[in-house]
């Protein structure tokens, strides 16, 4: 299994690692049993994601996709962030090995989970805007 140079770069020098105190939205997806958990923090100013941080427990691809996903939404509008797909994350990383594609799905879900939390805190029902956040849909180890 080979990782692209970009994946290795984002793994060894992950961007936006950490937490945001008083974040406007926090989302966590994945579970320990499956071997990956991603936690995303966002700060929103006037509909723009002014800051984003993440913490990830997982493999190289999990760290790299989290890092890339934060880069792709930082400074973007919430609407743009909602449109982020796992495919875009994979493309930005110059591809992922097939067995690692679920990591990119998790990264997309982590962003959506943080946005959901943001809407909920605003008193807005997130479901019509963000949709349901799937639970490890590609994972077969978790019953």
């Amino acid at each position: 299994m080979l990782y692209s140079e970009k994946v290795l770069d984002h793994f060894s020098n992950p961007r936006n690692v950490g937490e945001i105190e008083n974040a406007d939205g926090v989302g966590e997806v994945g579970n320990a049993k499956c071997g990956d958990i991603m936690k995303m923090y966002i700060k929103v100013d006037n509909g723009i994601i002014s800051d984003v941080k993440f913490k990830t427990f997982g493999c190289g691809a999990a760290v790299a996709t989290s890092s890339m996903a934060t880069e792709l939404i930082k400074g973007k509008s919430i609407d743009d962030a909602l449109k982020l797909t796992n495919k875009a994350v994979v493309e930005a990383l110059d591809g992922l090995p097939p067995v690692k594609l679920h990591c990119s799905v998790l990264a997309e879900q982590a962003i959506k989970a943080a946005l959901s939390d943001y809407y909920s805190r605003q008193g807005i029902d997130p479901i019509p805007l963000v949709g349901e956040i799937g639970e490890c849909e590609d994972c077969h180890t978790c019953e």
Partner: peptide, 10 residues
């Protein structure tokens, strides 16, 4: 608290 593959890569 650590996942093995990222440990190996590091």
């Amino acid at each position: 608290g650590i996942e093995g593959e990222s440990l190996l890569l590091m």
